[in-house]
Design a protein around this nucleic acid. Structure first.
Lengths: 235, 235
DNA sequence: GTATTAAAATTGGTTAACCAGATTGGTTGG
DNA sequence: CCAACCAATCTGGTTAACCAATTTTAATAC
């Protein structure tokens, strides 16, 4: 049998076809929540793909809460109806690699909220880790060095201080895409870094003094440049 | 050798220890962005765990953009510095299963925004799929049936109409947790469903007439109950 | 005929062996 | 002395065989 290395997108295409087939199977067989899917081996044979591929597709659907596998027992349709399932799978299949614009738009949305929440909920420990990140950032900028990492850490510290575990998780999820695109489009500018010091200080002070409105406002100012830049990128 | 089935949390604990060890290794060996990690086989031997566990940990770190593996070549430290890396890994290790409160808080945040964006960007196709979901929802409610699925589809259709692929992705990611907790806490109430029809109609009309402010406002009304309910849950 | 129990088949999970491409080091021909 | 080439080795990716727990089936005792 011929073996070949699959690119990410090729592999994804296979996953999507398998997901489609699993969906069709559930619909055709009228499987209801709680019903058992055929075993991985049967599916791999029926679909003409390796069992590994089937497992991967199942894991994806499990990630989005559509299937539920129980060890030594089977894979089951989760407790959401067929209608919701079909709708969600449709969206999952349509998922594309995120574009820069949507990433920035989402990041700004998230961070305006985390800044606000941080001002309401920050503990002294949160405040200290924000202070540390901020000091490290300032030191590097004043020394003329690149400080993207310290910048990132400051923003993550704010997310931590927001006390919202889901938002932290979402921030971490979108961070790789943000970093990649920052590099690609050379967003970071040395000039901006200097301005950034004051902007960061303003945000910090607002959060320190428990002023949610001001914190959000200062974060908005901080993102103004980025916002404009992002909306000037060609679609 | 004894084999045993690991629970999800046990497996996660192993992953976290391996991630920690990889982080320590990078720090101790002063690996810089672009440097190559030892091979999976060497790591599995050095850490005393199976190669599969090592691969899983590497995949996690790759998911968050910290490592980058190239087939038939090796695993490399991604192009983010050690400082950012340490900060991010710390957050990743701290990640916990999301609590209901943070999920709802985040969902409301996201949906207020998607409603607004949908009012600005919706195409006629978007409008039609929203209409379909809405009609299905109304029909079921009027028939006295449970309509949680149709409700979900309507909200997903709005997210689609927002034209922001990242927000769609994040919505899908938090949806399983939302559904699980809705069941657990019996959030959905038949009384609310009737009110929901009008609220959904209001949101739809606002998006149809390209009124972002109104769309956000109507979405806020729609979430008012949920918001209060969520803040009354014990921490 | 029914309940009980044991054995056989089926399940998802795991692992060790294997694959082809990439890398590396040394060798050879110019 | 250097460039080109080749074979040995190392890499992540893949697969087939294996494991234990479960479920089903069949046989047996009552």
């Amino acid at each position: 049998m011929k073996l070949e290395i699959l690119t990410k997108s090729e592999n994804r295409e296979i996953q999507n076809t398998i997901i489609t087939k699993i969906r069709d199977l559930i619909n055709f067989k009228n499987l209801e929540p709680g019903d058992k899917l055929p075993s991985e081996r049967m599916l791999s044979e029926k679909f003409g793909v390796s069992r590994g591929n089937v497992r991967e597709a199942i894991q994806t659907l499990e990630y989005y809460g559509i299937l539920k596998t129980i060890p030594q027992s089977g894979t089951f349709v989760a407790n959401i109806g067929v209608i919701a399932m079909n709708g969600m799978i449709e969206d999952i299949l349509r998922l594309v690699d995120p574009d820069f614009k949507s990433l920035v738009e989402t990041r700004i949305l998230l961070e305006l909220k985390t800044a606000r929440l941080a001002a309401l909920r920050r503990t002294n420990v949160d405040l200290q880790s924000m202070r540390n990140a901020l000091d490290a950032y300032t030191a590097k900028v004043l020394n003329g060095e690149d400080a993207v990492q310290e910048d990132l850490l400051f923003h993550l510290a704010i997310a931590e201080a927001s006390g919202n575990s889901t938002m932290i998780r979402l921030m971490l999820i979108i961070t790789p895409g943000i970093l990649t695109n920052f590099e690609k489009y050379h967003v970071c500018d040395v000039n901006q870094a200097f301005i950034g010091i004051q902007e960061h200080e303003d945000i910090y002070k607002a959060i320190e003094s428990n002023d949610p409105k001001l914190a959000k406002e200062k974060m908005k100012v901080h993102f103004k440049m980025l916002y404009q830049y992002c909306y000037n990128i060609k679609d």
